[in-house]
């Protein structure tokens, strides 16, 4: 009985790893493309949309205080100087492909890369 259970455990572990690895590669190959815009959201609301081909840097104020500096440099986006405790967003590094994101959970700030969709830009530039 115990041996049987250990075998089932092993099957579960292998299945989880194989399925996730497969999904990971599918996302990387088919979903991620070169992006055009970086959309900045705070607490679920889009507050900025930055063109990836224009170098810039903006300060974003997080939900319930705190700030992050978002830099666009040569088609890549990264975060610097966040005053959150974990600095996870700074450690994420540079992103440039659609579906990639930088997340700052404590400030509820997300930067996500999106492709070239015209209607989205219109709704952002109010």
């Amino acid at each position: 009985m115990e041996n049987k259970k250990i075998k089932r455990d092993a099957v579960l572990v292998l299945l989880c790893i194989i399925i996730s690895a497969a999904v990971y590669f599918i996302i990387n190959i088919y979903v991620k493309k070169d992006g055009a815009y970086a959309v900045v959201k705070v607490d679920g609301e889009i507050i900025r949309s930055l063109e990836l081909n224009k170098n810039t840097s903006v300060i974003v104020h997080g939900y319930q205080g705190g700030s992050n500096i978002i830099v666009v440099d040569n088609g890549q986006v990264y975060m610097t100087d966040a005053d959150c405790p974990d600095k996870l967003c700074e450690r994420t590094g540079r992103i440039s492909r659609t579906g990639e994101s930088i997340v700052c959970l404590p400030h509820r700030v997300v930067v996500e890369i999106q492709g070239n969709t015209a209607e989205r830009i219109d709704s952002v530039v109010q």
């Binding site: 989880c16 690895a21 990971y24 607490d43 997340v103 996500e112 890369i113």
Partner: peptide, 19 residues
């Protein structure tokens, strides 16, 4: 909460680490 479906792309890696 963050209104971002892009976060879901982290799921495969999180499932592997969780395993």
């Amino acid at each position: 909460i963050m209104g971002s479906s892009a976060i879901l792309y982290y799921l495969p890696v999180l499932i592997i680490t969780g395993t």
